[in-house]
Design a binder for these strands. Sequence first.
DNA 1: CTGAAAGCGCTAACAC
DNA 2: GTGTTAGCGCTTTCAG
Lengths: 329, 329
Amino acid sequence: MQRRITIKEVAEAAGVGVATVSRVLSGGSASAETREKVLAAAARLDYRPSALGRNLRRQRTGGIGLLVPDITDSFYARLADGVLSCARSYGEPVTVGVTGDDPEREAELIGTLIEQSMDRLIAVPSGDGEMWGPALRAGLNVVFADRRVRADVPSVVPDDRAGVLTAVEYLAGLGHRKIAYLGRHGQSQRVAAFTSAIASLGLPADRDLVVHARSSRDSAYAAAAGLLQHRADVTAVIAGGNVLGEAAVLAARELDVRIPRDVSLIMFDDVPWAELCSPPLTVISQPAQDIGYRAAELVFRQGRRPPAVTLPTQLVVRASCGPKASARR
Amino acid sequence: MQRRITIKEVAEAAGVGVATVSRVLSGGSASAETREKVLAAAARLDYRPSALGRNLRRQRTGGIGLLVPDITDSFYARLADGVLSCARSYGEPVTVGVTGDDPEREAELIGTLIEQSMDRLIAVPSGDGEMWGPALRAGLNVVFADRRVRADVPSVVPDDRAGVLTAVEYLAGLGHRKIAYLGRHGQSQRVAAFTSAIASLGLPADRDLVVHARSSRDSAYAAAAGLLQHRADVTAVIAGGNVLGEAAVLAARELDVRIPRDVSLIMFDDVPWAELCSPPLTVISQPAQDIGYRAAELVFRQGRRPPAVTLPTQLVVRASCGPKASARR
DNA sequence: CTGAAAGCGCTAACAC
DNA sequence: GTGTTAGCGCTTTCAG
């Protein structure tokens, strides 16, 4: 391992003190002449300031941490892409962790990040936000993405209320009355929006009409299949994410229930394959990449920040919804 | 920002010296009694050793860097997931960067990682491997994933030769002779395998039958559309990745060329939607997550490492390939 | 405007 | 077995 050039060597090469080098390189004041000398020496030696040294001294890390439930889920991948893209413009590294929507694992990852003295963190929180107390008190600069679970943490979220309402209204307009919501744990926001939308349209309320899956394809499939199997009376389902939508289509095929003839399907999150699917899926598109980007902007912002920014969703009608079918069986 | 507990405070609380605390916490020798005291004090104060301090002293970072062309591409997302999963078992953080398959951007990211004193790096290299010289000489512990562009860097790659050969043979068996390869830049391996497979089966060689796209959906679509439009004589295409496959299906629909009636399609990389697609896509599946996991194992391994590990691919026949059609138009 | 010096938190010699 | 101490590379007072 080749030894690394240090500020001291640059100072010697330039014939100045280390403090001067530090100042010049961080844009402090210096005479034009000195500046020149230092810059030349640094360039000549190909000097790279050690982030370790700087961070230790400064007692903070520039970089940012990013916690997502599942990087394999297109939605979170796009969200991450947004964060990465913003961070790149700041030249700051981002450390990502996968929580699997498990609060325990999340806490563990937060611990790792704290050990790194990472003081900026973007997270799709997995629990109800309780365990964030300590981290917050420790001074961690956190912003939540996709889910808003605490009022004291700035959050960037899609407009769940509007999105769900649009979906439910659209389905109701097609004559559906028994509409199910297939969600994943941690989406309390959305479930609340769903039940309230159902209520506001005077549709029959039924707790069993919302089904939850954990953060895995298997779990999603099981939930979807269970719903389709046991509730032959539901004529429409809203899948709370692309993995759930995928599971719903798969389960429907397996169980030989036809979309949209037997049941209509609306999926949250527009993904490229939604259009290629048979039938093409009607979706509520969400600005995943934007959510990430905005969250990153927020976490880099020093001053007072808005408590929440809500980004619009959009209904994209394709071919997975039809008029209410007579109940199956 | 709450001040952080330091080793010194733990030492005082336990009534021992700092070195002892350090030793105990890193599993060094100490009497049972002291160990007890230290552990108790550390737990009581909720002490978190600062990675910054340790790394500065040690002159290295535990964590690992990961460079992928596009985190939004399911293949790389799964690869990343594998890396993350392995790193988690070591309790080490991973810093990810997106190169967009651009060597310049890649170099920039490597620079950032070096500033962090990151000494372990997993990369899907974007160029021909030339620019890796300096980084390697600087002692960076690199392993390549998905692509093998330098013999002096351990690599974990899918078995491109076998995969491509299988695909070409399958297609040839169906009667196809004009087979095109739709790849992305940087996949030189695969292109070589393709041309050699074509040759070994005695099919007509034609340089224009391999088309390249850059790392974006738009570029992929343009390449696919161009191929389908200008080469009405090709009756089968192999897409070198899921993004390219998606683009091919989309372009085919747009141009009203039917799969598999007008052209057969084999896609590299099996993704959940391949089965949901209309028609379901025949694919060469690749162990993306495994590639990442194995690469991570390698980068953590200290001693001598195998120069390359090749992971098997598999042909999954679905419905996107048919017998050779008469040339369109 | 510039240099000397004091640490940031930690580990690894080195003494005891 | 345990404590003391010297830095790792850097920024930031504080003098000059």
